[in-house]
Design a protein around this nucleic acid. Structure first.
Length: 829
RNA sequence: GCGGGUGUGCCGGAGUGGUCAAACGGGACAGACUCAAAAUCUGUUAGCUUAGUGCUUACGAAGGUUCGAAUCCUUUCACCCGCACCA
């Protein structure tokens, strides 16, 4: 039979067009059960999609197609995270305006996305750089300001000299900028806008319980939020009380000094006149030291000249300023118990501060011969030197000591979080303008809602500093409160993560001009039922999005409080050299290139055959060749398809496969599903398949290879789209393990014949099989298969009780004696 | 330092108590087709052994639990990722 020519380029172009013009993937709210599948939207760059994108988005598409076939009303939208620094920087480099750059990049992305066969509802496309979109960023900001969740504060912030802007806590990785692995973040003192995410810390923590996310993702969020229970204790310094957070109130009698962070905003209040010079010298030394260097640095400090009173025993203890105390955790000040904390110990040793043991371990002596302790003892034990609490258990006495202090109004229980407020100001152009005005008379004044959006001006000069400060006409405005004409707009823009924190909601009602979205729409489609993205977003985007969702719920706009109930963290595909794909390494794979050579279907199939999707892997183009080979065979088979009568064996197998694959797809085990599809296909032969069963196979293959399956679906005589058909159902009754056992018998016989051939070093042979009577029929039916697979010239199947066998005529060496159930005797000649 | 993960045959990678010398793909080798090659198809691919068998070695390393371990436990090594002076 003539080989069918699998012209994938033509086929893919054809269906792309058909899907587009029939608007197959556009959805509306309906009575049907909804399912919201979402991939994290990309930020468009001129370099276009790379293989990593191709992979994640294909995972989303597979899931969306699967759920669609299962009968859900599937929302699967796409958009562009167009605002942000990378676009601004790339535009500057390319000497164009970010707006132009973004526009071009998006057009390029769209071309590639369509080529990949991703089934987006294009009518819902969202672009964060449209003022229609970021207007609502500003609206949310105003609402937060109204509720006291957006505020301005001066504090030490992380500054990236390359980005020329401040960064959020989440964007500093290992002391470096998240975008510049080689750039140390500097510490600056600036007045900046913050969002009070910490108000939701407890809820963000509790909410994790009910989410169907990987344990790893949840653990990382938990650690990031970092809840610790302890006490807040007040220390009196120069007549004023200063709070200090500790998880070990039981060691209060061992406090021999206090350390205040060198970055503490009220540090100078504590410094005595005599010590001013010393402290200033110390601060000068620290200045210009990057956060990274600070982490590596030895503990250092300077005496402030002030003394505090230990609230437990009234002892006078010195107050130091230190480089190792984090300014914005707790109160930026710590009580130091050198005997029971190794950092305090180190510090005390260095500056000759007394070390006072207040906890004795149960079963050993912590002292050295000279009465000194060699190192801090951080474990539990019984209290000593602690007044009325002596001999009590350190672990049990915390509560009591806190109560004791509480009575004196010098302490209370406190829960402290590691999570910091979200620094949202950026000193860059390509972001959402923060809708605030500075008025000489009224101070900081929010823009009125009716005046939104505050549109980014096109005319700015790029160069040093924030480009927005170069457009004076834009900056100058009327004060919304008093009408004074000398108002000045805020020139800081929002962190790009502001956009991505709620974009998923805009998809549910993308064109709404009156409202951020219609609550009915949002409540119908959202939350996201299956979110897909990389591990790098767990402590950034996903924390912020959860926070925004809870806030919008509090505004009464949503009846749920988590953005995504199920989250799949996909693995990273590395370049063929095993390194992370990057332009500078030159190991980037362009999907369009691969599509040209093998087709999108082959690429998609390859991407999921490579490995289990949650694991990191190394890209290997050989996989695409393998997938392409398989698809050519599939195409050939179904192009020449003549429906026959369904073989019950195949029927059993396909039903079993449907059951397994349904489960695999649901759980992202695509690599396994693909293997099962291949095995199923291998069992198809010229005449053992009817049209219905053929279609079931195509339907399952469809989620991976949408184009070729549409084409073959049509070739089978169907007029509708396979994309909109329905997922095959398992017919349990058709599954019969008998067939598998028979297959095994046949396979074993073939293996045995081949083995004997090998031992005898014979090639073409005449084979005689002596089977127990109940297996004779099976082996006779399969004799052609056995002949082919074993390369035998002639094959005779006898029953062991056949007269000719018994007489030895047909069994010269008595091999029939070896026959057992499932294992016929074999004679070769 | 803390937390999470990974380690399987020539390679990628399944498998989490027996049906495992271990799915599937790739590579290599052999055979068929061909004048030849590519493509395609078939087989082999730990070692020894054998008329279809049996044995040994093997799932990072070392121990242990068990009638039985790639799979469970302990220790250890290597690599990857996240957080990190958070009091």
């Amino acid at each position: 039979m003539a080989k069918a020519n699998y012209d994938f380029n033509k086929i893919e172009a054809k269906w792309m067009k058909k899907w587009d013009s029939a608007k197959v993937f556009e959805v509306k709210k309906s009575k049907k059960k909804k399912f919201y599948v979402l991939d994290m939207f990309p930020y468009p760059s001129a370099t276009g999609l790379h293989i990593g994108h191709a992979f994640v988005f294909s995972l989303g598409d597979i899931f969306a197609r699967f759920k669609r076939l299962q009968g859900y009303n599937v929302l699967y939208p796409i958009g562009y995270d167009a605002l942000g620094l990378p676009a601004e920087n790339a535009a500057i480099k390319a000497k164009t305006h970010p707006k132009e750059y973004t526009k071009k990049s998006i057009a390029n992305f769209m071309k590639q996305q369509k080529a990949m066969g991703w089934s987006y509802d294009w009518s819902r496309m969202v672009n964060t750089s449209d003022s229609d979109f970021y207007k609502w960023d500003q609206w949310i900001f105003l609402k937060m300001y109204e509720k006291g969740l957006a505020y301005r504060k001066k504090s030490s912030v992380n500054w990236c000299p390359k980005c020329q802007t401040v960064l959020a806590n989440e964007q500093v990785h290992d002391g470096k900028c998240w975008r510049h692995e080689d750039t140390n973040v500097e510490v600056k003192h600036l007045d900046q806008w913050y969002l009070k995410i910490t108000d939701y810390a407890q809820e963000l923590l509790d909410g994790l319980e009910k989410l169907n996310w990987s344990e790893n993702a949840k653990t990382r969020q938990r650690n990031w939020i970092g809840r610790s229970e302890g006490s807040e204790i007040l220390f009196e310094i120069n007549g004023k009380k200063w709070p200090v957070f500790t998880t070990r109130p039981d060691t209060i009698f061992g406090v021999t000094f206090l350390v205040v962070s060198a970055q503490h905003s009220e540090l100078m209040e504590l410094v005595s006149d005599e010590q001013k010079e010393e402290v200033k010298k110390f601060l000068k030394k620290l200045k210009g030291v990057s956060e990274k260097q600070m982490e590596d640095a030895e503990k250092e400090g300077v005496f402030t000249g002030s003394y505090a009173l230990n609230p437990a025993n009234g002892e006078k203890i010195p107050v130091y300023a230190g480089n190792f105390v984090v300014a914005d955790y707790g109160s930026g000040m710590v009580m130091a118990v050198p005997a029971h904390d190794k950092r305090d110990f180190e510090f005390a040793e260095k500056y000759g501060i007394p070390i006072k043991v207040v906890v004795e371990p149960k079963d050993y002596e912590i002292y050295e011969r000279n009465g000194q302790i060699p190192q801090a003892y951080e474990g539990e034990g019984s209290l000593v030197n602690s007044g009325e609490f002596n001999e009590m258990e350190s672990g049990k006495v915390r509560e009591e000591i806190t109560k004791f202090l509480e009575k004196k109004k010098l302490g209370k229980k406190k829960v402290q979080f590691r999570l910091r407020d979200w620094l949202i100001s950026r000193q860059r152009y390509w972001g959402t303008p923060i809708p605030m005005v500075y008025c000489d008379e009224c101070g900081v004044v929010p823009v009125e809602e009716k005046d939104l959006p505050i549109v980014l001006p096109d005319k700015v000069t790029f160069g040093k500093g924030n480009p927005l400060t170069t457009n004076e006409k834009w900056i100058k405005t009327k004060c919304p409160k008093c009408g004074n004409k000398n108002g000045k707009r805020e020139t800081d823009t929002m962190d790009t993560f502001a956009n991505s924190s709620w974009y998923y909601l805009r998809y549910t009602d993308p064109k709404n001009e009156k409202k951020i979205f219609n609550s009915d729409d949002a409540n119908y489609w959202a939350p996201i039922d299956q979110y897909i993205g990389g591990p790098e977003h767990i402590t950034m985007h996903l924390i912020y999005a959860r926070f925004y969702t809870k806030f919008l719920r509090d505004l009464g706009l949503l009846n749920f409080d988590e953005p995504a109930t199920r989250y799949f963290t996909q693995g990273i595909i590395h370049g063929s050299d095993g390194e992370k794909m990057s332009k500078s390494r030159g190991n980037v794979v362009e999907p369009l290139e691969t599509i040209k050579r093998f087709g999108a279907d082959s690429l998609r199939l390859a991407l999921v055959s490579l490995a289990s999707p949650e694991n990191d892997t190394v890209w290997d183009e050989k996989i695409v060749e393998g997938s392409s080979k398989f698809l050519r065979r599939v195409y050939d088979y179904f192009s020449n398809f003549n429906p026959g009568k369904i073989d019950p064996k195949i029927e059993s197998k396909i039903n079993k496969t449907i059951r397994e694959i349904s489960d695999n797809v649901e759980n992202f085990k695509h690599n396994l599903a693909v293997i099962k599809l291949r095995q199923l296909f291998d069992s198809f032969s010229d005449k053992n398949l009817d049209k219905k069963t053929a279609e079931k196979f195509l339907l399952m293959l469809h989620v991976y290879c949408p184009f070729i399956t549409e084409e073959l679906w049509e070739k089978l005589g169907n007029k509708n789209f396979i994309s909109l058909w329905s997922w095959p159902k398992v017919e349990e009754k058709k599954i019969n393990d008998k067939f598998e056992k028979e297959d095994e018998i046949v396979k074993k016989v073939v293996d045995d014949i081949n083995n004997i051939k090998k031992v005898l070093k014979k090639d073409k042979v005449k084979v005689s099989l002596y089977a127990i009577p109940s297996e004779v029929e099976l082996l006779r039916n399969e004799s052609e298969t056995i002949k082919t697979l074993s390369g035998s010239a002639v094959l005779e199947v006898y029953a062991v009780n056949d007269a000719k066998v018994k007489s030895g005529e047909a069994d010269p060496e008595g091999k029939a004696k070896k026959a057992k159930p499932g294992k016929p005797g074999i004679y070769l000649e």
